[in-house]
C-alpha cells in the first residue's frame, strides 16, 4: 500500500515543476527499508513487484527500475552486515548513494548528451542531498508503521484465538 501510494504520488503531485527538482524516487527508501527489515524471499518479491510497476509507468527501457531496485536491495543487504543499520548517518549516506546511483544509471541508459547532463546536474545533486536529509526520517516512519501494523495484526490474531477457545 505504501509503495503504491508512493508510485501514484510520484507520477502526479511530485512531478509538478514545484517539487520536480527536489523530490527523488520515494521508492528507494522503501526498498532500503525492505532490505533492512524483511526476510530475503519476501523482500525480493515486493521489490520486484514495485520495480515492475515503475517500469510499466516509465518511458525508459523496460527492466531499468526492476534492476535498480533489485541491486539496491542486494547491495543494502550485504552492506548492512558490516555497518550499524540503526545509525542515522549510515542510513542517510545509504539513501543518498542509492538515489545518486539511480540517476547515474538513468543517465547512462538515455546516453545523455552534454546539454541534458547540464540541465539535470543541479536537480540530481539537489535530490541526492534531499534524499540524504529526509531518508532516515522516512525509514523511521516506515519502521513505526510496521510496528503498528504488527501490533494490530497480533492483537487481531489473539482476539480470533480467544473467540475460537470460547
Amino acid at each position: 500500500m505504501v509503495g503504491l501510494s508512493a508510485v501514484v504520488a510520484q507520477t502526479t503531485i511530485l512531478r509538478i515543476p514545484l517539487f520536480h527538482a527536489v523530490f527523488y524516487d520515494l521508492l528507494i527508501p522503501l526498498v532500503v527499508f525492505l532490505s533492512l527489515n524483511l526476510p530475503d524471499k519476501k523482500g525480493v518479491l515486493v521489490v520486484l513487484i514495485l520495480g515492475l510497476i515503475m517500469d510499466l509507468l516509465s518511458g525508459g527501457i523496460f527492466g531499468l527500475y526492476l534492476s535498480i531496485y533489485f541491486w539496491i536491495f542486494l547491495w543494502v543487504k550485504s552492506v548492512s552486515k558490516y555497518f550499524d543499520v540503526c545509525d542515522t548517518i549510515f542510513q542517510s549516506v545509504l539513501i543518498g548513494v542509492c538515489v545518486f546511483g539511480q540517476h547515474i544509471i538513468f543517465c547512462i541508459s538515455v546516453a545523455a548528451p552534454y546539454q541534458l547532463l547540464a540541465a539535470q546536474t543541479g536537480s540530481v545533486l539537489l535530490q541526492t542531498v534531499f534524499a540524504a536529509l529526509t531518508g532516515p526520517g522516512i525509514l523511521m516512519l516506515l519502521g513505526r508503521l510496521q510496528t503498528r501494523f504488527e501490533t494490530h495484526s497480533s492483537g487481531t490474531e489473539r482476539e480470533i484465538g480467544n473467540y475460537v477457545i470460547r
Binding site: T12, D25, L57, S58, G59, G60, H103, F106, A112, Q120
Partner: peptide, 13 residues
C-alpha cells in the same frame, strides 16, 4: 492524467 516517474524520460499518460 499522469507523468513519467523519472525526470530522465519524457512520457505522459
Amino acid at each position: 492524467v499522469g507523468l513519467d516517474p523519472s525526470g530522465w524520460f519524457k512520457t505522459v499518460f
